[in-house]
């Protein structure tokens, strides 16, 4: 399936991706993004008032969309085991609490995470907590293509279900779009497993470095045309990380890409989303911009660490009617 759909999309854009010049013409021919208008739209959606049953729905959905993340130099197998346990049972006191979508770690810790999550099927949804690995010389992406591909293959071999790659922002900003495109295509190929299946590829733009919404829109199309399964805002290592307007532009891009190709691509804002209130604003935006089809962990993720505990506290508040405190939730 993977191959067929990718091929279909590649065929459709074969002319576009023929050279740097054609690619540039296409990307620069996309409708511009007016910064003020885009930010006003994002802020407007942020005023939606999500209460009671809608809030309960949103909180559980948000938990299921979390890529619980630890990407520190000080990460250890112990830390990752704890994180993975938390991903499987975010609220030990409440078995009805859903699992997160994935844990997100560096490639060398994939195997550890996989060990814990190997049989993590959720009792109600049957969902499995995936292991996502950042790769391609994350977070800067400043390595040769060979190393990036090796990094990717290594993570896939260790059992990663998902690969979060970074684009070469230097190449992008200097207009070498074809290089960025071909790199994504190559990494996507490196995600393939010997049995023909493939790890899912999330393409990180580091929107804080791309600076303009026009660039975010262009990067989105570039990644989608190259076969990325997800487009992702940030590494979390550069400020600003995910913002509502950046995510808005990316949601518009996946909406338009589906209208053009029939193919859905997921969106993952990462970094800076810490509160339930924020997460709900994102879900409102997904709902009203991309459409309800994207309200699923298959199509939308939050790259976050502290967000989960706030979601859990709010979830408990909704269930018990009283405010909870951090002492009642695990810190892992």
């Amino acid at each position: 399936m993977t191959q067929t759909t990718t091929t279909a999309a590649s065929d459709q854009f074969a002319d576009v991706t023929a050279s740097d010049a054609t690619l540039r013409r296409f990307l620069h021919g996309l409708p511009g993004v007016d910064q003020v208008g885009a930010e006003a739209r994002a802020a407007g959606l942020g005023t939606r008032s999500i209460k009671t049953s809608a809030k309960e729905f949103a909180i559980d959905l948000a938990i299921r969309m979390v890529d619980l993340t630890t990407l520190e130099g000080q990460d250890t197998p112990g830390k990752v085991r704890a994180l993975a346990s938390k991903a499987m049972r975010p609220d030990p006191a409440d078995p009805t609490c859903p699992q997160t979508a994935a844990v997100c770690v560096y490639p060398d810790l994939v195997a550890t995470a996989k060990e814990v999550l190997g049989a993590s099927a959720d009792s109600t949804t049957g969902a499995q907590v995936n292991v996502a690995a950042v790769a391609t010389a994350f977070p800067s992406g400043r390595a040769s293509l060979a190393i990036k591909l090796a990094d990717t293959r290594d993570a896939v071999a260790a059992g990663a279900d998902e690969i979060d790659m970074v684009i070469d922002r230097g190449a992008f900003l200097s207009g070498r779009y074809l290089q960025v495109f071909e790199e994504i295509v190559a990494v996507r190929e490196a995600c393939e497993r010997p049995d023909g299946s493939s790890a899912h590829l999330k393409v990180i733009f580091e929107t804080g470095e791309l600076q303009t919404y026009d660039n975010v829109r262009r990067a989105s199309w570039l990644a989608m045309m190259a076969g990325g399964h997800f487009i992702k805002t940030s590494t979390g290592k550069v400020q600003p990380a995910a913002t509502l307007p950046v995510t808005l532009v990316m949601l518009e891009a996946v909406r338009d890409f589906r209208a053009a190709t029939g193919q859905m691509v997921g969106v993952k804002p990462a970094g800076g989303i810490r509160t339930t209130k924020d997460a709900i604003k994102y879900l409102v935006m997904v709902n009203e911009v991309a459409g309800p089809d994207w309200l699923d962990p298959d199509w939308f993720r939050f790259g976050a660490s502290t967000l989960l505990n706030d979601l859990l506290m709010q979830r408990t508040k909704m269930l018990t009617g009283r405010y909870s405190g951090p002492d009642y939730f695990t810190l892992d």
């Binding site: 279900d161 899912h200 193919q263």
Partner: peptide, 25 residues
């Protein structure tokens, strides 16, 4: 529109109903 790409995903499970905003008077 039906997604044509969803079958290729590793399913993380889906129980999504509609995101119906409850009354917020």
């Amino acid at each position: 529109m039906v997604s044509t790409g969803s079958t290729q995903r590793v399913s993380t499970g889906s129980i999504t109903g509609g995101f119906d905003y409850a009354p917020a008077p």
